[in-house]
Nucleic acid binder design. Sequence first.
DNA 1: CAGAATCCAACCGGATACTG
DNA 2: CAGTATCCGGTTGGATTCTG
Lengths: 124, 124
Amino acid sequence: MRARIDEDAKGRRQVSEACLEPCAIERGMRIIGGKWTGSILWHLKDGPVRFNDLSRMIGGASKKMITERLRQLEEQGLVRRQVMDTSPVSVQYSVTEFGQTALCFLDELRKWSEELPQELDRTT
Amino acid sequence: MRARIDEDAKGRRQVSEACLEPCAIERGMRIIGGKWTGSILWHLKDGPVRFNDLSRMIGGASKKMITERLRQLEEQGLVRRQVMDTSPVSVQYSVTEFGQTALCFLDELRKWSEELPQELDRTT
DNA sequence: CAGAATCCAACCGGATACTG
DNA sequence: CAGTATCCGGTTGGATTCTG
């Protein structure tokens, strides 16, 4: 399928693929493309992780960010939050079944990213 | 591989996977996760597209944004810019060979996004 | 056609301090 | 431990106008 830029009988250009409601790619990106969102999901992939551990795993992110993103992921049903009744209290985060479905392309992304030339690293 | 939260001989918790330099996922996201970046790349995948056509395809984005992201993608070597010597001047954008390597991931993302429940659509 | 320039409000996100 | 609250500077990105 080409990008569908056609010309009509009179040679006028037409773009038939206009998507005023953002296309799938964009909608998806707004869910897992936020700052730290992908990393969080990725670090939860092997099983439940506690808040502070997660926070340590993702060195660059502040607790505020981790919390904010976790809440968002929870609301969207990608992540599950479980409070363990211990003392001091412990909270575990894990990926839901729905969240799992995102992991396959995150893995694609990871593979791609690992091949990136260093000069692209804008680690501002 | 589990998330590698271990306990040492004395039972102290250790997180061995700390990544102070952001992990691959995050680095990748900062390249193709920007607003409109994915969409742009995606709409170029079937061949060269002219600036205004691209702009029309991605309804929600302003020209300013399109330009900005295209410059960025060009600088990173994902997109090629070619000025056609016509009058009025016409400019074509296309995906470079390097850019192509990102498309498989974007396709995975697209497939995932198309299955998303509508209630997640925060089309703010 | 393909942008560049300017303005400006809104949001983002880091730092820091505090809490049950 | 697992957050919440507040402050605040920097960036983002939309709207609009102008140009070769």
